[in-house]
Design a protein around this nucleic acid. Sequence first.
RNA 1: GCUCCCUUCGUCUAGUGGCCUAGGACGCCGGCCUCUCACGCCGGUAACAGGGGUUCGAGUCCCCUAGGGAGCGCCA
Length: 471
Amino acid sequence: MTVRTRFAPSPTGYLHVGGARTALFCWLYARKHGGTFVLRIEDTDLARSTAESINTILEGMTWLGLEYDEGPFYQTERMDRYRGVIQQLLGEGKAYHCYCSKEELDAMRAEQLARKQKPRYDGRCRDRRELPADGREPVVRFKNPLTGSVIVDDLIKGRVVFDNAELDDLIIARSDGGPTYNFTVCVDDMDMNITHVVRGDDHLNNTPRQINILQALNAPLPVYAHVPLILGTDGQRLSKRHGAVSTMQFRDEGYLPEALLNYLVRLGWSHGDKEVFSVDEMIELFDIKDVHRSAAAFDPEKLLWLNQHYIKSSDPMHIAHHLSWHMGRLGIDPTAGPDLVEVVLAQRERAKTLAEMAENSAFFYRDFDGYDEKDASKHLKPEALGPLNALREALAQAPEWTAVAMHEIVNRTAETHGLKLGKIAQPLRVAVAGRAVSPPIDVTLALVGRERTLRRLDAAIDHIERKSAVA
RNA sequence: GCUCCCUUCGUCUAGUGGCCUAGGACGCCGGCCUCUCACGCCGGUAACAGGGGUUCGAGUCCCCUAGGGAGCGCCA
């Protein structure tokens, strides 16, 4: 039997990291077993589904590289099929019309709660004969078995047993005829020949209902794997209020897709002490059975560490490609300055995100607005004038503008002035970078280039002179 | 309230009865390196939720308690 998994988000928001991880697990499982990964959009809630959500979800999947083999299928395009199956169930006596009003149901629930019972429909319309006179439209309810139990042999949670007595006759079609979630899932999983249902464990309680429906449909049962959800840093369930949970937000903040994927796969899953996994390694080593049963908290610090790890160790060309996108976001044209690959090489050990790297590299491509105040007052002082002037002169005559040549000139100037390297490198750094932080000074000069360096040195010298004149 | 799920350092986890005076990773703290910021290297801090069993022996098996989460919709 060929493995077929599906990821079935409802388009009522963006793709959050919990969903992304579920999608990753589904995808890995399919890839590992040479199976098929199906994408299905569960958009039966017309009021809350939006085309925009669908686009961000698709965009997120693409960015992460979780390509699907079939789909996306839209439930809204399968309404006729659902209606047909509902009729079939009705005809076979496996479902029935229910005319209970909202008020009636609310009263029932309130009473059950008051008696400290689990609220559930009591099945009073199961054998209803005459229709109410007001001609109201009924809903359709599924006849859940009254006795016995449902066994779920979950790949992650193990064997879980539910008593049918705990379940009730759930609504499968609304009074407007629209099918409901628990029902469409069953029809789709059946029609799409899904063999493995990998989803969030908030669905574990739905599983026995779905199994009962599937059985009423004479459909083969898929294998289930309920993955625990992701918690926020505070241990609470991750939600829209807990900050950066949107997949695309991670891209915008400068994370690499491979870093997010690596972080996500290690959340609830491990392979010994191994921390770093390429996508190929994930596919090779991942096994749904090794997924933890308990929820895991999202730790932004560790994600940051992984991101930096990939920035540091990936092919600079690859990083440059992503960096280019971030430079563009800052309004910088990466062709108007040094080769981005050189920039990556200079910056990759001092940036945890690409957004940070882009910001810290802007001065290679365009003039900065002004000096960092603290750094300027500390390093651009009158005593720096001599060295800076000497540097200006020496650099102007540099036969070639390379890091090696820069190194030579800066060191020699420091020596002739009897200064430690730091005493000369720092003023120089502030002069060309605008602040006291940058890659090694020789590399920095090489990247800034001759013209910009000399211009900025003049400006710095001018800055010091004007300041001391005022004082 | 009822049903179901979960519980090893702050966090992610290793651990499948003896190899555990509990290992790794992130973070944090200290040191080294050093032209800044970083990187790197070295060292340190820190956990089996509690209580009962079973067993020669329990983080590992069983039971109970506590705590956390989910579900109980004409939402998905």
